[in-house]
């Protein structure tokens, strides 16, 4: 697995956060799922988002990406207030995500799945026919194939997604998200259920992605992996951020240890 090296860390834009979460709260019928969450995510970094089950990790990602509106607080993307915007608008502004459970176009080819991620690059209008349309179609296909090649999926481009192994399908989902050329990528347990080898591959991909300047938020239960991949780790417990710090020190925090008693962070 590729470890975080100095060069990659130096790419992190430490001046201006790409995503700023301020005082975000989310209540579900009186139950607080997020309480006064404040968090910055910088371009080029991998931010590990960890915490016990039910800590609010997915809810926070949902609130950032517009999947659910926060009850209170604000979310900014590169200084622009995106609080409460719909998921498609947030996606168009540059934040893409994956879900815990795979969501692929099962009966479509790997290439078609990735092309879907590039649909915003199709600027032709219904009345645009002829050479412009053909050229753009070819360009997008070439870009999608280049991405598949980069991710080691080129040989599967024309294979239907449904029958492929789980690890490969995860890569396709991430490839589709990357095809959109996002500024921020939020991954919800991308290695869940994977073999260690597949998890390592995904880890390399995550580090490569951050290396291109994309802000990556990684929800991950595999403590070893998240520690290895992340520049910083934010720990959530009962909907609150209880610690944000570098991967080397965050697990030494008393509150983090208390949150994980009986868990894996020992």
């Amino acid at each position: 697995m590729t470890a975080i090296d100095e060069g990659t860390a130096a790419a992190v834009d430490a001046v201006m956060p790409l995503i700023e979460v301020r005082g975000v709260e989310k209540h579900f019928q009186g139950v607080a799922a997020l309480v006064d969450v404040n968090l910055d995510v910088f371009g080029g970094e991998v931010l590990g988002l960890v915490g016990p089950n039910g800590a609010g990790k997915t809810t926070l990602v949902n609130a950032i990406t517009g999947y659910i509106p926060p009850t209170a607080g604000t979310v900014h993307l590169a200084g622009r207030d995106i609080t409460g915007l719909s998921m498609d608008r947030v996606a168009r502004l540059g934040i893409t995500r994956t879900f815990q459970h795979l969501r692929l176009l099962e009966q479509s080819s790997v290439l078609e799945n990735v092309l879907l991620g590039r649909h915003q690059r199709f600027t032709v209008r219904p009345w645009t026919m002829g050479r412009t349309r053909v050229r753009q179609e070819r360009e997008q296909r070439e870009a999608a194939r280049a991405l598949l090649d980069e991710l080691g999926l080129a040989a599967l481009a024309d294979t239907v997604a449904a029958g492929l192994p789980y690890g490969v399908r995860r890569r396709i989902e991430i490839a589709r998200a990357l095809a959109a050329e996002p500024r921020a990528l939020l991954l919800d347990e991308p290695t869940a259920g994977m073999t260690p080898g597949d998890a390592n591959d995904i880890g390399e991909l995550i580090v490569q992605t951050a290396g291109t300047g994309v802000a990556v938020v990684l929800i991950e239960h595999n403590v070893g992996l998240v520690t290895k991949l992340s520049h910083r780790i934010a720990v959530l417990d009962w909907g609150r951020v209880i610690k944000v710090g570098d991967p080397g020190s965050v697990w030494d925090d008393e509150r983090v240890r208390a949150a994980y008693i009986g868990g894996v962070a020992t």
Binding site: D88, L116, H119, R133, R176
Partner: peptide, 28 residues
């Protein structure tokens, strides 16, 4: 042609498969 070869048509087909996936990728 519209359904198969335009962005608008692609979006419609994507929504037909999954509203969630398509919104995730910026489709209104």
């Amino acid at each position: 042609l519209w359904l198969g070869r335009t962005r608008n048509g692609r979006e419609l087909r994507a929504v037909a498969y999954s509203r969630e996936i398509s919104e995730l990728l910026g489709v209104n």
